[in-house]
Design a protein around this nucleic acid. Structure first.
Lengths: 265, 265
DNA sequence: ACCTGAACACCGTTCAAGT
DNA sequence: ACCTGAACACCGTTCAAGT
């Protein structure tokens, strides 16, 4: 493995994946001759665990090192900077939906309608963003061209190719669907996390936020209007309503794709 | 104005807007009796300026104080925490697309087709996210229920009400459109920023990232497939292609809405 | 090759004190 | 009412030194 901080002068690098070289492999040299049993994979796994448990804001190299029973500076042997490590964690999370191994769930015989598969992939991406709320910040901040993220992108591209859209249409549709899911999962993930850390149910927290908004007199009237709308939509918990909205939005996107295909553009 | 850090015990507050009280007003007491001319509005404006110039990562209370020619701790008289200040900056940015003042551009006589207005609002939101790349992180992290953000949300709700969708459909469509724009603008804004800070053109940076991805042998083939696709889409700079994708996605979303309306659901 | 300790230049925030 | 200075408990990262 290379201490990596060799590139001198040069414009500042902005991603582990640019001029990196087998980032996760750990140098290729077999197992356990290391004093503390450290390697990139173990460090990355610990990072993901800590990010899940305590959030991006509280994560630090020193906190991580403590978790690994090691000095803060040991980690720097395996990783150039904190940002590089976060990029590794980002890609590690994407491995969870990486369709490299189709698994027994999707019986390999049926090729499945693209509509079904779109719903499945979108749902998996949404679930990933909610399960790892820190992922959204990182996916937005970094280039996100690690192997697993790319694998995911390619799966999406293969899927969208089966819609019958033109080449240009495929790119636009891909963007419409998965940027939507990104936005939706981002907001949902952070909301869930904020409720948890405030020790409130999602419904209680939602009600509290609504009260705060309606305290502003100018907004009150306008928001009341949308309260009517909310009532007209039927009841349900915040979570149920969110699930319905997500499902409807996907239906809308699928209908949009079908219409664009029919229009031949 | 109240030193604010009065709420004792209590579950930790998670937003300036919850139990706040006229956050931007500055206490209501007229102009300039303050030694340093400081107030919330001035502090918030300086925050936005610094975030634009140096990014969220480099922003600090001490850096801000220096910019205001004041001790770091002076700011804490007007603001409880750094997070509260960031929420104020977030809402201040949303004021830029707040449609409170329709302006001379949209002649008040024509009520405009909802399709046109949707394109206008979506375009304005996208531009805002690209102009202030830090905004996306904050909008995702915080509740985003400041007065200007709410104003924007309500404008979107009014717009979507004119589509003819059912109440439930309106919420789903709103989500589909504006979460898409959020995702799109987030990625675009960060990409633009990263290119600038690496001192490269968007096209050069894109080519460099592509080369890095295609170095991985397993991915090479798959990515080459999408290179064909890219060629088939016709040429153009990264920016032109992005504009086309955005426009197509909006067309797709509008077509989807129309279809759902026709289906009566 | 891998790990440590001390050090540098930073953070956000509290608190007692000034005017 | 508003602002300051010193202090506390942190950061990411460098560097020389250990084994």
């Amino acid at each position: 493995m290379v201490r990596a901080a060799e590139r001198d002068g040069h414009p500042p690098r902005t991603s582990v994946w640019l001029e990196g070289g087998a980032p996760l492999a750990g140098g290729g040299r077999g197992g356990g001759s290391r004093p503390s049993g450290l390697d990139r994979a173990r460090i990355t796994a610990a990072t993901v665990r800590l990010l899940d448990a305590e959030g991006l804001a509280k994560f630090s190299m020193r906190r991580l090192a403590a978790d690994l029973n090691v000095t803060a500076m040991s980690v720097y042997w395996y990783v150039d900077t904190k940002d590089d490590l976060l990029e590794l964690a980002l890609d590690a999370a994407f491995a969870e939906i990486s369709p490299a191994d189709p698994g027994p769930a999707s019986a390999s015989a049926t090729p499945a309608d693209w509509r079904e598969e779109l719903r499945a992939l979108a749902g998996a991406y949404r679930a990933l963003l909610v399960r790892h709320p820190w992922l959204s910040s990182l996916a937005g901040t970094f280039l996100n061209i690690g192997p697993h993220a790319v694998e995911f992108q390619l799966a999406v591209q293969r899927l969208v190719r089966r819609t019958g859209l033109s080449a240009g249409g495929q790119a636009g549709a891909l963007s419409a669907v998965f940027q939507f899911v990104y936005g939706f999962g981002t907001v949902e993930g952070h909301f869930v996390q904020r409720c948890a850390s405030a020790g409130m149910s999602q419904d209680d927290y939602y009600r509290r936020a609504m009260r705060a908004v309606t305290r502003e007199p100018e907004l009150r009237e306008a928001v009341d209007g949308s309260a009517d709308l909310r009532r007209a939509r039927g009841d349900g918990t915040v979570e149920e309503i969110r699930d319905r909205d997500f499902a409807f939005a996907l239906d809308l996107l699928i209908a949009g794709i079908e219409t664009m295909v029919r229009r031949g553009e």
